[in-house]
Structures are given as structure tokens and as C-alpha cells.
Amino acid sequence: MQLLKAYAHDFWRYRYLLQNLIGRDFKLKYRRSVLGVAWSVLNPLLMNIVMVVVFSTILDMRGSGIKNFPVYLLIGQLLFSFFTEGTSSAMGSMLGAAPLIKKVYIPKYIFPLERVCFAMVNCLFSFIALILMMILTGAELHATVFLALYPLVTLFLFTLGVGLMLAAATVFFRDVMHLWGVFTTALMYFSAIFYDPLQMGSFTVGGTELNVSQVIRFNPLYWYITGFRATVLDGTGLTWSMVWICGLCAVLALALGLIVFRRQQDKFVLHI
């Protein structure tokens, strides 16, 4: 409790720094591009079109059985890319902040937090693409759309927790960066982004038969994405298992992230 209070106090004191760092990243990302911020919308939209074409024509990954496949796919893409962008940029954040934290005292967790916030800002911008796509495909607007805030907020906390752990680990072992890239690629195929797990069959590993829809339940990202789809696309609201799994994963990841990060943070400055 005391710990959380200290964090909250620091957070309040350095809120402007956080704001300014996010602003800086934002300016630098779009500086010298003609379309600027519009890329936040255009990029996911174009990616979505590519994937829709690929998965519904060339590789028919059973996308045809899914109601409003473009929107279904886009939700998966947006949330998943928020997670990968957030975690992988948080991972390198301590190394990036080296010139600063070697000279001035700043609470170190500001840097991973800033990167995850920045990824969230990007993600929110790209929701414009989602709205556009929903209008284009004539998707219904449900009242449950407001409930989408829950999977979104819990996903943010989950990503922050994972990001903090990765940031701490990367300071000591740069290998983590390379491993994580491979891991997220594997994870992408297991997050039900472009398929419906219920339509997938089973596979065998070492003689035991595993069902895709069973195995995927162990992937937290699957729950965030499915929860978001349920509220925005299907209009069914959140089931209890969505509520508690999303919440629990977020709390666990964040608690673990904060503990790991806090234990190691005093040593960071000697290793970067």
C-alpha cells in the first residue's frame, strides 16, 4: 500500500514530464511525413485491406464463416499491435533513456510507462480506422460498445506490466529483445486474430490431441481481443469469464512487473 502511495506521488509530480515525452515521441514520429498523423489511421486500414484480401482469397483461413470478417480482423490487428508495440518499445526504453538517467534523478518507471502510453495514443488514433471500416461494412452499432473500455483498460495495464518486466530484463540481457520478437510472432498466430478458434480443428503434440479452442484459452491476449469483439462487433456484452480473466491477468502482470522493476531499478544505471 505504502508502495502504491509512493508511486502515485511520483506519478503526480512527474505527470508533465510524461506528457512532454509522449508529445515528443508523437512529434518525432510524424515529422517530415506529408500526411503526418493521418498515417495512424491509414496504416492499419491499408494493412487490414491487405490481410482481408490474403485471408479471404489466397489462403482461406475459414475467414468466410465469420460475420463481418474485415472488422473482426481489424479489431484483432489493432489490439495485438498495441500489445506488441507497447511491450517492445517499453523493453528498450531504459536503454533509450540512458543519457538522461545517468545525469538526473528521474523515477525510472516513467520511461516504460511513457512508451506504453504512446502506444495507447497510437491505438486510439487507429480506432478511427476501425470506425471507418465499421461504417464501410455497415456494421451495427450496439449499446455495449461502451463496455469495450474494460478490455481496453485492462489490456493497457497488462501490457504495462509485461513491459516493465521486459524493460528490467533487457538492461541485464540484451538477448531479450531478440527473443521477444520471435515470441510475439508466434503469439500472433495464437491470438485468434484472423480466425475463429471455434472453427479450427485440433492438432496433436506428442501423441495428445489438443483442441485449438481449448489451448487458446491460456493466452490472455485472446481474452482481451475476444472481449473487445463481443462488445463492439457482436453486441453481446462481456461474459463473466472475460471479466475476471482480463482483470486478473492485468493485476497479476502489473504487480509482478512493478515488483521486478523495483527490485532491479537501482542497478540499472550501472548497466546501461
Binding site: 508533465y16 514530464l17 506528457q19 512532454n20 515525452l21 515528443r24 538526473v104 528521474i106
Partner: peptide
């Protein structure tokens, strides 16, 4: 502005 906030000043 960035450096000022690093030093803990308000905008």
C-alpha cells in the same frame, strides 16, 4: 519545455 519538465518544473 522538455528539459524543464525533466527538472520537475510545471509547463
Amino acid at each position: 519545455f522538455l528539459n524543464g519538465t525533466v527538472l520537475g518544473l510545471t509547463p
